[in-house]
C-alpha cells in the first residue's frame, strides 16, 4: 500500500458516499445515470468474485464489501425507492455497446485464461468505460448539479491517483500491470474535459454548463 493508492481508494469511497448522500438527502436521482451505476455494480461483482477465496487484508476485504454494498444500494435507491425521479429520457446510452466489447476483449487480452482472471480483466475494461453513460447524460442535459460534479471529480481522481500508484510501484517494487494501467489511462482520459470544466467553472462557484 502507498499514499497514492490509499488516496485513490479514499477518493473512490468519497465519490460513492457523495452519490448516496445526494440521492438520499434530495430524495432524487435526477441527473444521475442509472446505467453507469449498473456498470459499476457489474464491475465490482466481476472483480470481487475472489472476496471469499483470496484474503489480502482486512482493509481490502472491508473495502470490497463496502463498494459492493454501496453499488447495489445505489441501484436500489435509483430503480426502486426513488424510481419516479429517475430520468429515463436522458439516460439512453446502450449498455450492450460497452459490455459486449469489454467481455470480448477480456477473452482475447488477459493475463491468464481462467474464469477468475477473465472476469477480473472484464471488470477492468468495463470500469474504464462505465462513466460514459453518465458523461453522455450530462452532455445531453447540458448541465449537472454541483453535487454531481463533485461526485464525478472524486470518481475521476480515484483512477488518476491509481495511475500514480502504478508508476510508484513500478519504480519502488518493479511491479506493473499493463492491462490495469492502460485501462486506467483510458478511464482517466475520459474525464479530462470534465476536469477542465470542473476546475474552471465549478470551483469558481459557477454551475457546470457544458457547451451546447
Amino acid at each position: 500500500m502507498n499514499i497514492f493508492r490509499l488516496g485513490g481508494d479514499l477518493a473512490h469511497l468519497l465519490a460513492i458516499i457523495i452519490l448516496l448522500l445526494k440521492i438520499w438527502t434530495t430524495r432524487s436521482c435526477a441527473g444521475i445515470s442509472g446505467k453507469s451505476q449498473i456498470l459499476f455494480a457489474l464491475t465490482f461483482t466481476a472483480r470481487y468474485l475472489d472476496l471469499f477465496t483470496n484474503f489480502v487484508s482486512v482493509y481490502n476485504s472491508v473495502m470490497k464489501v463496502v463498494y459492493l454494498a454501496a453499488a447495489y444500494a445505489t441501484l436500489y435507491l435509483m430503480y426502486v425507492k426513488f424510481k419516479a425521479t429517475y430520468d429515463h429520457n436522458h439516460d439512453t446510452f446502450r449498455l450492450e455497446f460497452l459490455i459486449l466489447p469489454a467481455a470480448g476483449l477480456a477473452l482475447i487480452i488477459n493475463h491468464e485464461f481462467s474464469i477468475i482472471e477473465v472476469m477480473w480483466t472484464f471488470s477492468i475494461y468495463l470500469e474504464a468505460v462505465a462513466i460514459l453513460p453518465q458523461l453522455f447524460m450530462v452532455s445531453k442535459t447540458g448541465e449537472a448539479e454541483s453535487i454531481t460534479s463533485h461526485y464525478l471529480f472524486a470518481l475521476g481522481s480515484y483512477r488518476a491517483l491509481y495511475i500514480v500508484n502504478w508508476v510508484y510501484r513500478y519504480y519502488s517494487e518493479g511491479f506493473y500491470d499493463m492491462i490495469a494501467t492502460l485501462a486506467g489511462v483510458v478511464q482517466t482520459v475520459l474525464y479530462c474535459d470534465f476536469f477542465y470544466l470542473y476546475i474552471t467553472k465549478v470551483l469558481k462557484g459557477k454551475k457546470l454548463q457544458l457547451p451546447a
Binding site: 493508492r5 481508494d9 473512490h12 475472489d50 483470496n54 489480502v56 487484508s57 481490502n60 473495502m63 470490497k64 463498494y67 488477459n110 493475463h111 491468464e112 482472471e117 477480473w120 491509481y162 500508484n165 511491479f175 506493473y176 500491470d177 499493463m178 492491462i179 490495469a180
Partner: peptide, 10 residues
C-alpha cells in the same frame, strides 16, 4: 506474471 500481483489492489 504481473497480473497475479494486481489482486492486492481494489
Amino acid at each position: 506474471r504481473s497480473g497475479k500481483s494486481t489482486k492486492d489492489e481494489l
